[in-house]
Design a protein around this nucleic acid. Sequence first.
DNA 1: GATAATATGAGAAATTTACCACAAAGTCCC
DNA 2: GGGACTTTGTGGTAAATTTCTCATATTATC
Lengths: 208, 208
Amino acid sequence: MTRPIIPDIVVSRLPLYLRAISRMEEEGLEYVSSHELGARLGISAAQIRKDLSQFGEFGKQGTGYHIPFLKKQLIRILKVDRVWDVAVIGAGDVGSALARYQGFQEHGFRVAMLFDSDPAKIGKVINGIEVRDVADMERLIAEGSIQVAMLAVPAEVAQETADKLIAVGVRAILNYAPVNLAVREGIRVEHIDPVIHLQHMTYYLAPR
Amino acid sequence: MTRPIIPDIVVSRLPLYLRAISRMEEEGLEYVSSHELGARLGISAAQIRKDLSQFGEFGKQGTGYHIPFLKKQLIRILKVDRVWDVAVIGAGDVGSALARYQGFQEHGFRVAMLFDSDPAKIGKVINGIEVRDVADMERLIAEGSIQVAMLAVPAEVAQETADKLIAVGVRAILNYAPVNLAVREGIRVEHIDPVIHLQHMTYYLAPR
DNA sequence: GATAATATGAGAAATTTACCACAAAGTCCC
DNA sequence: GGGACTTTGTGGTAAATTTCTCATATTATC
């Protein structure tokens, strides 16, 4: 069984679709057309239909998409019909905020571990999660079979920390450090850096 | 004078180039080839040459790119050869972390204002920045001629807050709220949502 | 039940984006 | 000074992505 390979750019839009229709469900809507969904997201209706049709026939002519059904399908496709345990590395401002964020639980994720190297932080409890010594990180992550990590450490140690994570089984890293991580084939990395986004936007701004 | 329109996808890579060569400069390197830069970023050398050539001839055959010169050019192109005052809306975990982040200053940005609606937070000082009442937001932003904002408010009030920001002159919004903002033509919005990134990555993970 | 209106899924076309290949220019080393 | 390397910028090509178009199906209305 060789499923057709779905372009990554298509996959990258699925979470946006899921977020939008989840909101629509909360609003009490039952059906949505590709046109309405597209209007909310600033994406063409054709694009949405094409994307979704890669995974199956979820819509109905004349009616559109049944929101609870489409939501269920997207959740399944994105594999968030389970809860992924996530390790947060670094308990500074960013790591702490991630540990406290309430938005993970209902979208398929749980901050299961939190690490830092600062003795002053180790042992503290943030949102019910104890800060562990990063020296024990590899052992604990391996024991916990954790596949997903969020990296919120200083730029200087980001690469070496990522290498350690990958060595003990982590396969997806959400990197908050302002460096490009080099990883081997098969490891997923996504980057979050506000400066990158701001600089992208200032290109289009006129000086004032 | 009609400059050729640069594709946005090209512009979106420029901050990555800038970040990478800034790091190379710190490492004491003087010249870099498109091939070396590409290897660091996971981007093809041809892509980098093509992207940069859209803005001028910055390289030299046989030598590559002079790092300080290229850096200067990218800084100019991205308009971060000045410091942009930025307003942060919301002084919760995310807003506070943004106010404390030391990485803005040297990359063209300064958190000039911080707002919240919680009386318990108003008046507090975070990293030298006083938390102001969001009720005064519009007046203060208009007075400060602020064009860039980072939105770190609850999802429920994100759209209305964005509308207010735009009404008083903000033209670029970095949105941390997990909602798609609808904005008029000419307003730049970028989104940061860890859940979106995590869900994108779990698509590729095998259950364990 | 017929007709008009609505909306999907998919093949085809158009557009955008990325890559290749090479001439030209610079460097290095003997 | 000359030959072997290296590297850029670019025109052309290939690949990827988006949009268009339309047959087909469903719903609503009279």
